[in-house]
């Protein structure tokens, strides 16, 4: 089996008496989509925050490409190739869609400390940025400020940014959240294709999307992983059915 690109071992985080993350270990292998599901309050988002570096775990380690990144800042992890999308679309209000993608391209190039040449009309930024927008179908909305993009367009912009960044692995916190059924279908197709470029660890509530996309599913309940397996294994798992899925998966 291929070496995992992303690994988490023995992660623990408590808020007061609440064990939000209680000894979580999981990994992400090349080419796969690994979905993290669980009831509300299971600690999914907290776990994502610890993996991307915006929250420090009390115990445990995060490895990326075999390197311990537990002490790295979110920006350092992003530079190493760990891309993320946010649960609530996180945009720069006055920047256009193209402006966002160009910023991602300059970040990838490591050229944010260039002071003289104007960004506008810089083809070394613009062309890769437009290519990333085109992949998510936003090329016709390139010049629209993010503040007036629709919800679904912002979700797609988030994906375009990790494409422009050339991330090696992706953390996605509820990519389907708030998407209409049409939008969900398009995004599902896009993510399914994307996994070959960059494996995806995603938190998702949309069970149709999860079972359509995931190669492996881990179930998080009260900060612990109670089961990991293929979608079929998870569907049949009695513990999971009782704890979480209920009738939804039958």
């Amino acid at each position: 089996m291929a070496e995992p690109i992303l690994g988490v071992s023995g992660l623990r985080k408590t808020f007061g008496a609440l064990k939000v993350t209680d000894g979580v270990s999981l990994d992400l292998r090349p080419g796969e989509i690994h979905a993290l599901i669980g009831p509300n309050g299971a600690g999914k988002s907290t776990l994502i925050h610890q993996i991307c570096g915006s929250l420090a775990p009390d115990e445990g380690r995060v490895f990326f490409e075999g390197r311990d990144v537990t002490a790295s800042t979110p920006a350092a992890r992003a530079r190493a190739g760990l891309g993320r999308t946010f649960q609530v679309s996180t945009v720069i209000p006055e920047f256009t869609a193209l402006g966002h993608a160009m910023l991602a391209v300059q970040a990838r190039q490591g050229t944010s400390f260039r002071f003289l040449r104007p960004v506008a009309g810089d083809r070394s930024l613009r062309e890769p940025a437009m290519a990333a927008l085109a992949r998510v179908g936003l090329e016709n909305r390139a010049h629209v400020p993010a503040a007036v993009l629709s919800h679904g367009e912002r979700r797609r912009l988030e994906v375009a940014l990790v494409l422009a960044l050339g991330s090696k692995a992706l953390l996605m916190d509820e990519p389907m959240a708030g998407m209409g059924s049409e939008g969900s279908r398009e995004l599902t197709a896009l993510l399914s294709e994307l996994r070959r470029e960059a494996p995806i660890l995603m938190v998702e509530h949309d069970m149709d999307a999860v079972f359509a996309l995931a190669d492996r599913i881990s179930v998080l309940v009260y900060g612990r992983i109670v089961a990991t397996g293929t979608p079929d294994e998870i569907r049949r798992d009695p513990v999971v059915r009782q704890a979480y899925l209920g009738d939804e998966a039958s």
Binding site: A75, R84, F86, I92, E94, L103, T111, S112, R114, F115
Partner: peptide, 25 residues
Amino acid sequence: ASRFGAALQAARQNGVRLASLGVEP
């Protein structure tokens, strides 16, 4: 108008987003 200026204005409007792209605000 420069790349630095783009990053600086991004840092003002959304530092978390800038960091997620790998640039330390």
